[in-house]
Simulated scan of single mutants.
Amino acid sequence: MLAAAFSLSATGVVAQEYVIKFSHVVALGTPKGKAADLFAKLVNERMKGKVHVEVFPNSQLYNDNKVMEAMRLSDSKTTGIMAAPSLSKFVKFSRTIQAFDIPYLFNDINDVHKLVDSPLMAKMTQPLERKGLKALSLWDNGMKVFSIRGDRPLKKVPDDFAGKKFRIQSSEVHAAMIKALGGVPQKLPFKEVY
Rank of each mutant, 00 (worst) to 15 (best):
S147R: 13
P103R: 07
A27E: 15
H174E: 15
L136S: 08
P158T: 01
A36Q: 03
K92D: 08
L138R: 01
F190L: 04
V14E: 13
H24Y: 08
A135R: 04
A40S: 03
G33K: 03
A180E: 10
E17R: 09
M47R: 05
M124A: 12
L133H: 09
L42N: 04
V55S: 04
G142L: 11
I102D: 08
N65F: 05
F161N: 00
A3P: 03
Q186A: 02
A15K: 11
K34Y: 01
S118P: 12
G163V: 04
V25D: 11
S88Q: 02
G49T: 01
K156E: 15
S74R: 13
S23I: 00
G33F: 09
P189G: 03
E54W: 10
I109T: 11
P119S: 07
I81S: 11
S76V: 01
S94T: 11
A40D: 12
F93R: 00
P158C: 06
K187L: 13
V157R: 02
T11G: 15
F106E: 10
L61Q: 03
K134F: 06
Q186L: 10
N141D: 14
K179V: 12
I109W: 02
G33Q: 08
K77W: 02
L61S: 02
Q98I: 03
K187G: 00
N65R: 04
K134I: 03
